[in-house]
């Protein structure tokens, strides 16, 4: 059950409802507790998730 600090969204890989922080940002990455995948927040109203891109060699600081 989601509390005030979380909301639910659908894991696009499994179709399950998962909890995400209520203050998620577009572009943020969520680790799905169901599929284990990294999911990217692509919209916040409502929260929609897509499978995140794979790590690229030139990523970093």
């Amino acid at each position: 059950m989601a509390d005030d600090s979380t909301i639910t969204a659908e894991d696009p890989l499994t179709g399950d409802e998962i909890e995400v922080p209520a203050d998620v940002e577009v572009g943020e990455i969520i680790d799905s507790p169901v599929s284990g995948a990294e999911l990217e927040v692509v919209s916040t109203d409502p929260v929609e998730l897509e499978e995140a891109p794979e790590l690229e060699e030139d990523w970093g600081e």
Binding site: E25, V26, G27, E28
Partner: peptide, 24 residues
């Protein structure tokens, strides 16, 4: 950006608290 890390979120929160406009 192309990915919002914890670092970016900290910056975004700080900018919003100070009422700056943000264009992501």
């Amino acid at each position: 950006y192309s990915r919002i890390r914890r670092d970016e979120k900290l910056l975004l929160n700080e900018l919003r608290e100070r009422d700056h406009e943000i264009t992501k």
